[in-house]
Simulated scan of single mutants.
Amino acid sequence: MARVRPGEAANPAPPTVQRIRVRFAKRGRLRFLSHRDIARSFERAVRRAGVPVAHSHGFSPHPRISWLGAAPTGAASEAEYLEIGLTRELDPAGLVAELDAALPAGLDVLAAVVAEPPPLADRINASRWRMELPGVAVAELTAAVDALLARDSVVVERMTPSGRREADVRAALASAAVTQGAGPTSVSAAEIVAGCAILTAVVRQTTPAVRPDDVLGALDVVAGLRPPVPAKVTRMAQGLLDDRGRLAEPFDSDRVTARV
């Protein structure tokens, strides 16, 4: 085995010449995939599509795919983001089509752009969530949301791998609105729940992160609201929050889109 000279990588790999940012959706039953399962799916899709992905150096090289703020397991999303390093330049439109075709239905590539400064992490500081609450009346949810917004602070506790953590939901909640959903909702083969209130909430990124289940936990704290069945949660957007409570799209206007 050749000796490694000082300052050289043990297993040099081709350099990264281009970075492409990708927006994708997590839909249907695939919302129950863990983040690691999603990462493995993308790694397999990159190999299957023949994408010239860059790899790290060393004896155990891994593809240079970086992730940003994955949605919780069980939550769907229309706005998940990753960045791929490439060893040669590609047209983002071609990458969208090839990667989308190599992924299972439910992991759908929506857009791609060539990465430009500032970093993707600096373009996102909040998420907009849609929470469908079968069996909860609009009036009941509206009263609970009003009670939450009237507070200066509402702290909830959550178990994490590192122990119990507290998060101030009210401090992270930028806005919340209640609307009426569709009529009777099928929960199981034997149960129909009448009515479905929908909560749309814009939540700032905080440490620790405030998740949709934390928002629902805060509604329980302030108003005793407990949906009879689990909420259906979807992340609709991520971006920079402006003074009017709107989220700016992280991608530039020249993004390439695919099927919706």
Rank of each mutant, 00 (worst) to 15 (best):
R151I: 02
E43C: 02
I84W: 00
A121W: 10
V155A: 02
M159Q: 11
R170G: 07
L216Y: 01
A25F: 10
E80F: 05
E157L: 07
V193C: 14
V229W: 07
F59P: 03
A25K: 09
A190M: 15
G181A: 11
L240T: 12
M131R: 00
A115W: 09
A75H: 08
A137P: 04
V113P: 04
D108N: 04
D252L: 15
A143C: 06
E132P: 01
A9T: 04
S175Q: 14
L173D: 06
L99T: 00
E80C: 02
G28V: 14
R259H: 13
D168A: 13
L90H: 02
A9K: 08
P63H: 06
E249L: 07
R255Y: 12
A258W: 15
R36M: 11
P250W: 07
E249G: 00
G94D: 15
V113N: 04
E132D: 09
F32V: 05
A111Q: 11
E98Q: 07
V233C: 08
H57V: 13
S41T: 08
E249Y: 12
T87P: 00
R27D: 13
Q18F: 08
R204F: 05
S162P: 00
D91H: 09
T185E: 14
A139N: 10
G239R: 07
V210T: 12
R211G: 04
S56Q: 04
A112I: 08
E78T: 01
A144G: 11
F42V: 00
P63K: 05
A147Q: 14
G7Y: 06
A231K: 03
M159A: 10
W129G: 06
G85C: 09
G181K: 06
P6S: 11
A194D: 13
P63T: 06
L82Q: 09
M1P: 10
P52N: 15
R48N: 05
A147N: 10
S162K: 14
A102I: 02
G195F: 11
S60C: 13
A93M: 08
A248M: 01
F59R: 03
E249N: 11
P63Q: 12
D213A: 13
G85I: 10
V178S: 10
I20M: 05
P15V: 12
D122K: 13
R158L: 02
V145G: 02
R23E: 12
L68W: 13
V210F: 10
V114W: 05
S253A: 15
A9P: 14
L216N: 01
A144Q: 14
R170M: 05
E78M: 10
L199I: 06
L95K: 00
R204A: 06
P15T: 08
L216H: 00
S153D: 09
G58M: 07
S127K: 10
R170W: 07
P184F: 03
G245H: 07
A76C: 02
G217M: 08
M236Y: 02
G239M: 09
P117A: 15
R29N: 11
K26D: 15
G7A: 04
L82E: 09
R36G: 05
L107Q: 00
R128D: 09
H62L: 10
A93E: 14
D108T: 12
L107I: 07
L120M: 14
P119V: 10
A144P: 11
E98T: 01
A102P: 05
T87N: 01
L90V: 04
P228A: 12
A189L: 15
